[in-house]
Design a protein around this nucleic acid. Structure first.
Lengths: 345, 345
DNA sequence: TTGTACGCGTTATCAT
DNA sequence: ATGATAACGCGTACAA
């Protein structure tokens, strides 16, 4: 074989030009080159020009390790995923949060480290974080282990994606306005003339589950309507199927239902249809998430769209601001949802 | 407010014990501590004990930046995703590859950097990679941009997940044995006594699409059976629906069909059922992927399970071996698939 | 505005 | 087996 199977790391590193080289070529000192690289304002325009030319010519790239060592900053942030990966990455919601985070990071020179805690967050990850591998942390998960998140928040700037059910933890939170979203969904049902409006909720152990019920109730109160029956699910499709049967058993007279996830809604709809309950004529449905499954229903779902990419972007944005020294970032940021009207209501 | 909203990075770093501190406490020199940390065999057991005790007591964690600077290695590898994130992360297949990569990396002290090229891989990412941020690269994607991958392979050890359609590129490849998987699927149909076996293929622009057709043909040849009709799809559900109609039009006498993705199979099955073709009585179906959609079909799909997590693990494994100095890792590694028998065949 | 010089925490070489 | 000591590449007082 004439060509080596792979490049060796040393090939690259050995030829990498340093500050020193740039300085020599530009006819200035290392310090001046460093200033130019870091955008210091106190440097002569002419020097800037010379240095920039030298940098371009040599293809100089600052050595990250050296920079970190000297500046005591890693210029990297960690994306901490405290649960099983497949569950996390399989979820489109999380996928677009990551997209958003990346979108913001692309505009900076921060690196994103993936830290997945397959077997639950362990001491090893904590030690890594304590070792200064990253300057800040972004935590994304529905269920985050209590003590784990607390420990991270104690040692590093942290932004939490989706308000955790635990209270009093350090760090910032970016979340979707679940209450407003659920209220909007319910108002849409009310505007359509529905009078007896039920809900299939998410788990009451999750903040989002709680919030969406609150929004539903809020809209009903506003309109002076009596809350219909409420059945609890766990966001999954089968739980939606079960809940639908229960709902019909409790009160067959309902004419509207707010379902806290599209997955549950797509599990529920066939039940309604099978029993001869027409959608939306007899029963108007509004889901939540704007997931692909909303479109695959026999009667496409009217639903609430969450700005998940924007959420990721905002999370990164806040963390970057903190790292830049901004001390008064909002502790909690709520992002607005959007009603997507389709056929089911 | 009595407690600050977040910890500051300096809090952590300022208190982090160094090699120096450990050395002092253990009554040895920095060099000896370094040897212990890096597992050098040439150090007195007694010293080892003292050092380890000091490390534990102080909670010492090696400073990554300093180590990188001195050793010329970042002890990090990059996960390069050359396409749009949502598309990538939404895919369960990729999700479990990441899981696998992480599983292997957990056993090492390598970090995983996420490098996503939303707008196509740009010069910025290439510069980063050239700057020595990582020691090696893992590329995961069906469609990887030609020149991009080539450039990476030229400067860093690289392992490719899923054999790319382009040939002659540097780097190692780990892939699922698509030919064998398709052949197994087809053999299962043959063993069930099917004589007229068709296939709905993936796109002929992808290596996997090509390979699965080859496997199908191979099994047929082995059995001395004439290949049935072949219709091309693009792995998506709608394309499966279209292909099924076409297939029935071409040859209604088929009694077996190998479909190159579960998604296409779940698009095709309703067509067969609607036309009164019973599954599996009249037509036996075998899909590919073992995706969730295989279970959601009216007649649950017999399918081929890809070892995607194992694939990720092997990718990381090979890269780590290369970084450890192993020069004769296999250029191409094929992982075996598994037949999952359900109701459709 | 610019340069000098020291420090960042490790690894690695060379004596001992 | 162990301990000085010199890199590693960069940031940054401090001085000029």
């Amino acid at each position: 074989m004439t060509t080596p199977p792979v490049a060796t790391a040393s090939q690259v590193r050995s030829t990498a030009p340093t500050l020193e080289a740039v300085a020599a070529k530009a006819g200035v000192s290392r310090a001046t080159v460093s200033r130019v690289v870091n955008g210091s304002p106190t440097v002569h325009p002419e020097s800037v020009k010379a240095v920039k030319a030298a940098i371009a010519e040599l293809g100089y790239v600052p050595n990250r390790a050296a920079r970190s060592l000297a500046s005591q900053q890693s210029h990297a942030i960690a994306l901490v995923v405290p649960e099983d990966t497949t569950r996390f990455f399989g979820d489109v919601y999380f996928a677009s949060i990551v997209t958003g985070i990346n979108r913001r990071l692309e505009q900076s020179d921060y690196l994103l480290n993936l830290m997945i805690a397959t077997h639950g967050p362990d001491a090893r990850m904590l030690r890594y974080l304590a070792g200064g591998v990253v300057d800040g942390v972004v935590v994304v998960s529905h269920h985050a282990d209590d003590v784990f998140v607390r420990e991270i928040g104690d040692m590093l700037p942290m932004v939490f994606g989706g308000r955790p059910a635990l209270s009093g933890l350090k760090g910032h939170v970016v979340d979707v306005d679940n209450v407003a979203g659920a209220a909007d969904a319910t108002r849409h049902l009310i505007a359509a003339g529905r009078k007896r409006i039920a809900t299939i909720s998410g788990p009451m152990t999750m903040q989002s589950g709680l919030d969406r019920v609150e929004g539903w109730r809020l809209a009903l109160d506003e309109a002076g309507l009596e809350p219909g029956p409420i059945v609890h699910g766990d966001y999954t499709m089968p739980s939606g199927t079960r809940a639908a049967r229960e709902l019909l058993a409790i009160d067959p007279s309902i004419d509207g239902v707010f379902i806290a996830s599209d997955l549950m809604a797509s599990g529920a709809q066939p039940v309604f249809l099978d029993r001869g309950v027409r959608v939306p004529e007899d029963l108007a449905m509004v889901g939540y998430d704007d997931s692909p499954s909303a479109l695959n229903c026999e009667v496409p779902l009217t639903t609430i769209c969450q700005p998940s990419a924007a959420m990721g972007e905002e999370m990164a944005n806040i963390l970057l601001a903190i790292l830049a020294g901004d001390t008064d970032q909002p502790r909690e940021t709520l992002l607005p949802t959007q009603l997507i009207v389709r056929d089911s209501a």
